[in-house]
Design a protein around this nucleic acid. Structure first.
Length: 264
DNA sequence: ATGGCCTCACTTTGAGGA
């Protein structure tokens, strides 16, 4: 079973590139983040024409998550237990989490909040979001230790110093702070292993390159997109890759697809 | 040439991204 995660940065702007990528990537399941559209604008035919079922959740021009599968797709859940809301006036639960079951594997598509600045309310929201997600996953794996489950997504944390091109550039910035890295580690502590790094070792290996300042040609990126699998699933991982070819050329997303093959 | 972006919307500037 071949599973990919990809922050596409607008499913409408990326429509043709996503179709071409599906045609050549041979993935069974694709977890998508940053749809940047509401449900009524979602291009279902992009997936159904290729034999994929698809579940999606988009509220407006921000965020949005989906999962497409050609090996079955059941029990769609939007959000997770006690998912935090954001906003001071009228807090809103954003479209950042969706899960489905494909071929007996519970699969999540997650778009973790960015955090913006260390002293911004969005940063506290990001940490709260991690905490609630960790509690939900820990409860599931505690109740069912052999459950096959994988969190796919844009985690908006660079767990290691080598996951950014220059730590000096990130002094005082989000994505590399101790609290964010601790939140990511705590999530792993719920019973998950990050399965992509073993197949794509660094340094200098990234999943995101900013559109600005020629970050991609200069090889200045960040590793922030991952697959976190429960032990029962992680032990079946046989191969993985970051498709940085997909970052090339006009009209690319700023994130590359991250693919893992599981022997299930 | 020593800086260089992209997407969306009640667009023609501002917000958000990371």
């Amino acid at each position: 079973m071949r599973i990919a995660t990809w922050n596409v940065n607008s499913i409408r702007a990326r429509h043709d590139r996503i179709g071409a990528w599906l045609d050549r990537s041979d993935v069974d399941v694709l977890a998508i983040q940053e749809l940047k559209c509401k449900d009524s604008q979602f291009p279902e035919e992009l997936f159904t024409e290729r034999g994929y079922e698809v579940s999606y959740h988009g509220l407006n021009q921000w965020n949005g998550v989906a999962i497409a599968s050609r090996v079955g797709l059941a029990d769609t859940e939007i959000g997770f237990e006690d998912i935090p809301a954001f906003g001071s006036e009228e807090p809103v639960v954003e479209a950042r989490a969706l899960s489905v079951t494909c071929n007996d594997v519970r699969i999540y598509s997650l778009y973790v909040p960015n955090g913006r600045e260390l002293d911004h309310p969005h940063y506290a929201y990001k940490l709260d979001w991690y905490k609630a997600l960790t509690a939900d996953i820990a409860a599931q794996l505690s109740a069912e230790p052999e459950k096959k489950l994988v969190l796919c997504g844009d985690f908006n944390v660079a767990p290691l110093d080598e996951d950014v091109w220059d730590m000096a550039e990130f002094e005082g910035a989000t994505h590399i702070s101790d609290a964010e890295r601790a939140a990511f580690d705590d999530l792993l502590g719920a019973g998950l292993s990050e399965v992509t790094r073993q197949f794509t070792p660094g340094p200098g290996v990234y999943t995101f390159w900013d559109y600005q300042k020629l970050r991609f040609p200069k090889k200045q990126g960040m590793r922030i997109d991952f697959q976190l699998a429960s032990q029962a699933l992680a032990k079946t991982a046989t191969a993985g890759e970051i498709d940085r070819e997909e970052r090339k050329g006009k009209g690319a997303s700023d994130h590359a697809p991250v693919i893992v093959d599981y022997d299930v």
